[in-house]
Design a protein around this nucleic acid. Structure first.
Length: 989
RNA sequence: GCGGGCGUGGCGGAAUUGGCAGACGCGCGGGACUUAAAAUCCCGUUCGCCUCGCGGCGAGUGUGGGUUCGAUUCCCACCGCCCGCACCA
């Protein structure tokens, strides 16, 4: 005899959700049909409580399930359940069998009050599911998402080809590094991009929306060292996992275009580009300083140096000179800077950051004569006007002259060596005091005969900027002042503040950097700063000892990395011919598979055979370049490769011409400088070498905010995952396992180290992709940081459930799809119809402007407005039909699966993903009447409703006729009545 | 230090860019349905005061000032928070 379980078939009241969730979960895991019955109920109640696949509708309990339930509940569980103590006893019984997950026990037994056991309940009909057929149709994301993803795949809905007859739109999100799992930042990023892609597709654009993998990089080598997995395997495994996760998000991607930068099919073309750049003089090799880890035998990036030590080895990092490959980004400095102005659809913030990074400054190079030597020192200054205030000269420790003297002077040599140790760490730079070493050399002051300035080697002077030497004017530069005070150097004020007195103006602890008149300065006296700069520069130039110059902070881009898991640099070092570029026919240079990671240093270097080759020029013995490219190189042109991902050349001309530039690029602001600047350079370099025909790769850029979550620490200071904590009703938070209090940290960016992360996979399992997507878009504006919250996700989930019911459980019959508009509307229907049209306009505008949170709000408003209708008046069944269809179309970019499902349920034709965007019926966008606020002296006193655009006099009269207004005016003189049409009336007393 | 941004209910955030502050949601309170719980639905929800009630009055967008008939929005000063850059000559 089978027993039927309805939607209310199994339930466990009493303790609230967690008891219910955990206990039941354990219980029902033991028997198939009972599990499904319970999960069914769980899913309906709270998606977080549900398992994965759920059987719907009515379930027949198997004999096995009944036996389990009998055991748990002590038999006789059929029919209605008695109340009271009996139930409590059974609950205790159930608890024994179910063994709640650890940590729940305390909560379970410590709560007072009545308690009811888990029990099956015979039921055939319920008020919630009026009939089995409707019960079958309730919102089940797991099922419908898989279904529609398969449908899009089957139809090739998102496959795209260049088609010059159609307008194109290229949407690109920054491609992910395959670290293993997608994280919430990815979910947000790709959701935003997908909304744009789907929206633009609906607007009739031919949309390119590809996905790939930034697949080279150090973590793969770390994994190889730590877990003995080959980097390639680790990377491709991660890609497979993450691809599957991304696919579950239902992104409208053309997966046929997928690329991975670690694949020879990609990096061989990168090698070709490099050879072209080399020929064009855009790549070169020179010695440069690097952060060298003497233990790991590797070069470290600045961010891998922590407090002057290698992040992995902990060894003190050295500054070492190494021969390195560079891209000549400085060939485009001025262009990269000035073109920022044309990037109108980039955030101001990013353009500013790039501008600061390029760091243009105007000034002059000046030569100073060294006393007792035949050579000169060249310095750079933006303030040649302060030359008469100069009291010393300072050289960088790496200045050739410093090094020369340092060789003969052990003290100076030691000082230089110390500077080299210090200068690698950013923090050290920040806190290091200004120190110098007097070389004993003197230079002549150019305009003060007989005056000599001491020459120091100073730790704060950078070799890479200007000429690596400065003159110090302590009175007008804080850093020089600090230095001068320390070494007892003269402080000569030469710029007089506007209100200063030339007789007794002096500089104390703060250098004066403001405007003023020059004094104490011979031929510059009386000039303002600006003209004095020009005059001093001219004087230097006239005497042949200087020139005006513009210098930039931006330096050439060093791309050599002493690593295995990167794109090999296609050159050979020949003893006879030197550095020889490979021929194109020799490409690709493939990475060897058989490498070992048991030794520190670059595995390519250790490889027994790989690097030994013959020189392509002379046929003699040669050695391959064992450095590989910086991974920023890989990501500097992937957007171009997506246009023709399988082409034999780096790009196919016709296709890049059609697709580029990227119309909308979306990613994190953390790439505002390097990645974006490198990509801009690369595009210019590819232009020069004939691969593309444009300079700017990204027409529009959007930088999204990060995903945050509060962090938790247990009493002993250990970080806890959000799922390890428990919020009690009184608001306090405890550690679930120990029931001890937990310290709650401020909300900050999700990071593994602080464990304040929520796994997207689990959220999608529980609520489905549409809920995750909707939540990502809902509350926070996309450029702002988003706080992840369980409540927010549940809100999104609840809305989708509500939407589902709005469509599936409509209380009245809808008109046929596409049926003509009724001749007459009731006012209820008309109001709703206006709302529909207003919503089309508003959502369209919001999506265009990336105001997705507002778009979601508009959609919900429409939903609420439609539910105001009860089908009782004329036109409502037609308006409801139209309203639901529009609603789904507007929601489709954001929550595509449920929209597709409900579209089909409404009998919509074809796939919603292929349906054009709705347009508004203009006649119904604006209301015929407007409500106008009436103020008296700026204070709101009431509102009037008048016909839109009606005459001012009528509005004024109506406003003054308001009793409340009359009362406020009461006898006083009206000085003025301001009427702003359709907006406001202000009666000024 | 330099550069940029942001401060609005208990919370996330709206506000057509100078025109009814608080859309939409979360939370909370109340109600309906239920033996019960969950879910769902309905009502309310800036604060204070007056009123049996309808309703009304006052305050209110970090603080203080200014411009304006009118300021969350523009200007000045200050406070707080966040981000980026930083010995750049």
């Amino acid at each position: 005899m089978a027993c039927e379980f309805g939607n209310r078939g199994v339930h466990a009241p009493g303790f609230g959700r967690c008891l219910w969730r955990r206990v039941d979960y354990r219980l029902v895991c033991t028997a198939g049909d009972a599990r499904r019955a319970v999960q069914d109920q769980c899913l309906r109640d709270r998606p977080a409580a549900a398992g994965r696949r759920v059987a719907r509708g009515r379930v027949q309990a198997s004999a096995a399930a009944r036996r389990v339930l009998d055991r748990c509940l002590g038999g006789s569980w059929h029919g209605a359940e008695p109340r009271g103590h009996d139930s409590w006893a059974r609950a205790a019984n159930a608890r024994r069998f179910t063994q709640p997950i650890s940590g729940r026990q305390a909560e379970y037994s410590s709560r007072p009050g009545p308690c009811f056991p888990i029990y099956p309940y015979l039921i055939c009909r319920s008020p919630i599911y009026p009939s089995p057929s409707i019960a079958m149709a309730r919102y089940n994301p797991a099922e419908i998402e898989a279904k529609w993803q398969a449908a899009w795949e089957r139809h090739g809905t998102f496959h795209v080809e260049a088609d010059p007859s159609r307008p194109k739109y290229y949407v690109l999100e920054m491609f992910p590094y395959p670290s293993g799992r997608i994280h919430m930042g990815h979910v947000r990023n790709y959701t935003l991009g997908d909304v744009v892609a789907r929206y633009k597709r609906a607007r009739g654009f031919n949309v390119l929306h590809p996905m790939g993998w930034d697949a080279f990089g150090l973590p793969a080598e770390n994994a190889a060292r730590e877990q003995k997995i080959h980097p390639a395997k680790w990377t491709y495994d991660n890609i497979a996992t993450m691809r599957a996760e991304l696919k579950r998000m239902g992104l409208s991607l053309d997966w046929r275009r997928e690329i991975a930068t670690c694949h020879p099919g990609y990096y061989r073309h990168q090698q070709k580009l490099f050879l072209d750049f080399l020929k064009a003089g855009l790549a070169y090799r020179r010695e440069s300083f690097v952060n060298w880890d003497p233990v790991d035998h590797t070069v470290l990036a600045n961010e891998q140096v922590i407090d002057g030590r290698g992040w992995r080895s902990g060894a003190a990092v050295e500054r070492r000179k190494l021969s390195q490959w560079f891209f000549k980004i400085t060939a485009y400095t001025e262009d990269l800077l000035s073109a920022l102005g044309s990037l109108a659809r980039w955030p101001e913030k990013v353009r500013l950051m790039q501008e600061n990074w390029i760091g243009k400054s105007q000034g002059a190079f000046m030569q100073f004569e060294l006393k007792g030597r035949s050579d000169w020192i060249e310095v750079f200054s933006t303030r040649p006007d302060t030359i008469f205030g100069a009291s010393f000269m300072a050289l960088s420790p790496n200045h050739p002259l410093s090094e020369e003297i340092g060789r003969d002077n052990p003290c100076l040599g030691a000082f230089i060596a110390e500077c080299n140790r210090m200068s690698t760490s950013e923090i050290a730079i920040e806190t290091a005091e200004k120190r110098g070493y007097d070389t004993g050399l003197r230079v002549a002051h150019p305009f003060r005969p007989g005056v000599e300035l001491p020459v120091y080697v100073a730790n704060f002077v950078l070799m890479e900027y200007g000429s690596g030497a400065i003159f110090g004017c302590p009175a007008h530069d804080q850093r020089d002042l600090d230095f001068a005070r320390k070494y007892g150097l003269e402080v000569i004020p030469v710029v007089l503040p506007p209100d200063g007195d030339p007789e007794n103006f002096s500089v104390g602890a703060d250098a004066y950097v403001g405007p003023g008149k020059i004094f104490n300065s011979d031929f510059l006296d009386g000039l303002d700063v600006e003209t004095a700069v020009a005059a001093a520069t001219r004087r230097f130039a006239d005497s042949g000892r200087g020139r005006a110059a513009t210098v930039y902070r931006l330096r050439d881009w060093g791309v050599s990395r002493q690593r295995y898991w990167g794109c090999p640099i296609p050159v050979v070092h020949c003893e006879i011919c030197g550095v020889v570029a490979l021929r194109e026919s020799d490409l690709p240079v493939l990475l060897p598979d058989d490498v070992t990671f048991d030794k520190p240093g670059n595995p390519l270097d250790h490889h027994p055979t790989w690097k030994h080759v013959i020189c392509p020029d002379c046929g003699g013995p040669g050695r391959r370049e064992t450095d590989t490219f910086d991974t920023f190189v890989d990501s500097s042109w992937y957007f171009a490769r997506f246009c023709s991902p399988r082409a034999d050349a780096p790009v196919n001309g016709a296709e890049v011409d059609y697709w580029l530039s990227v119309d909308q690029y979306i990613g994190g602001v953390e790439h505002a400088i390097l990645h974006l600047l490198y990509a801009r350079f690369f595009t210019r370099a590819m232009h020069r070498t004939g691969h593309v025909r444009l300079d700017e790769p990204f027409g529009g850029l959007f930088t999204q905010g990060m995903v945050c979550h509060e962090s938790y620490r247990s009493e002993d200071g250990k970080w806890l995952y959000p799922e390890e904590i428990r919020k009690l009703d009184d608001g306090s938070i405890i550690h679930a396992e120990t029931a001890r209090p937990v310290t709650v940290g401020r909300r900050e960016v999700m990071s593994k180290s602080k464990k304040n992360v929520v796994a997207p996979g689990a959220i999608i399992d529980t609520y489905g992709a549409d809920t995750a997507r909707l939540f990502m878009l809902s509350d926070s504006p996309p450029e702002r940081d988003l706080e992840w919250s369980e409540a927010g996700v549940e809100g999104a989930w609840r809305y989708l459930g509500r939407l589902h019911r709005t469509v599936m459980e409509s209380t009245f019959a809808l008109a046929d799809s596409g049926s003509p508009r009724p001749v007459r509307f009731s006012s209820v229907a008309e109001t709703a119809y206006r709302r529909i049209n207003k919503t089309i306009v508003a959502v369209t505008d919001d999506l265009e402007k990336f105001r997705f949170n507002r778009a979601v709000a508009r959609v919900r408003e429409l939903n609420n407005a439609l539910l105001e209708m009860d089908g009782k008046t004329e036109g409502e069944s037609w308006v409801m039909r139209v309203g639901l269809e529009i609603l789904l179309q507007l929601l489709a970019p954001m929550a595509p699966h449920i929209a597709e499902e409900l579209w089909a349920a409404l009998g919509g034709k074809g796939l919603l993903a292929e349906h054009p965007w709705p347009s508004a019926d203009d006649a119904y966008v604006l209301d015929e009447n407007v409500e106008i606020a009436v103020q008296v002296s700026g204070k709101l006193r009431g509102t009037i409703e008048v016909a839109r655009d009606c005459g001012e006099d009528a509005v004024r009269a109506a406003a003054l006729a308001l009793p409340n207004v009359a009362r406020a005016v009461s006898g006083r003189t009206i000085r003025q009545v301001i009427v702003v049409p359709n907006r406001i009336v202000n009666v000024v007393l």
